[in-house]
């Protein structure tokens, strides 16, 4: 993985300027990963392995990695979900239980072992099959694979990019509240925004994936 162009930047350096309750929420997240209450041990192992492929963090020491599985577990246990389901999808809790079982099923069908026991390349192959709706397994008869994959990716993203380590690597200065911004014009950088050490344009990634099979699901209304 390429290193972030914002190495050395830490949004937490500005935390003293945040609203008190925002600071509390963010620090609580940093210091307390929730206990596992919804998933079984086996499901946790599978999900951990999946998360490592959806947003790999091999560049970080294990103890410095952003925890994802415990926060997904919390959402499902507390039913802190969006509350709606598509007509051809089960409710959230079932979708996750079935989907994780389905990914193991596909792994066994293709490679004779559970997902967690496969090497990274084979894991990616399984996940691509699920993304494209071409995965083997009884589960996928009841659970549309592509839609489950979309849900999986959206949820992993919402946990990862809620963490200051993720804000740091993308050059986002964090809540900036209540201070806000002064230099809002195109091309202008506020003093509390980092400057990248070098350019890492994403143009090639867009061009390579323009007609890519989207993960599905919507990012949510913006206007």
């Amino acid at each position: 993985m390429k290193p972030s162009p914002y190495a050395g930047f830490d949004p937490l350096d500005e935390a003293r300027n945040w609203e008190d309750r925002t600071r509390e929420v963010v620090f609580h997240r940093l210091q307390h990963a929730p206990e596992i209450r919804f998933f079984t041990e086996r499901e946790v192992a599978t999900l951990d392995a999946i998360v490592d492929r959806i947003l790999p963090q091999e560049d970080r020491e294990p103890e410095a990695r952003v925890p994802i599985t415990p926060f997904i577990d919390q959402v499902l246990f507390e039913d802190d979900t969006d509350g709606f389901r598509k007509a051809d999808m089960p409710w959230e809790q079932d979708a996750w239980k079935w989907g994780l079982a389905g990914i193991d099923e596909t792994s066994r069908a293709r490679f004779g072992a559970d997902f967690g026991a496969l090497d990274a390349e084979r894991q990616n192959e399984v996940l691509s099959a699920v993304q494209k709706g071409q995965a083997e397994g009884e589960v996928w008869q009841r659970l549309p694979a592509g839609k489950f994959f979309g849900k999986l990716v959206q949820q992993v993203i919402s946990m990862y990019y809620a963490h200051p380590a993720a804000w740091a690597e993308i050059g986002w200065p964090g809540p900036a509240s209540k201070r806000g911004y002064m230099r809002t014009a195109y091309g202008r950088i506020d003093p509390w925004q980092p400057r990248p050490a070098h350019e890492l344009p994403s143009v090639a990634l867009v061009q390579a994936n323009e007609d890519g099979s989207g993960a599905g699901g919507s990012g949510g209304a913006l206007h």
Binding site: M1, Y6, Q154, I157, L200, P201, L205, N209, G214, G219
Partner: peptide
């Protein structure tokens, strides 16, 4: 960031290292 990354994933189908590197931008 969360909404942007979700939009990137849902339209370009990105995940994995590609997604993290994309988000640097």
């Amino acid at each position: 960031p969360i909404k942007f990354a979700q939009n990137v994933a849902s339209s370009l189908g990105l995940w994995g290292t590609d997604l993290r590197e994309f988000m640097y931008d």
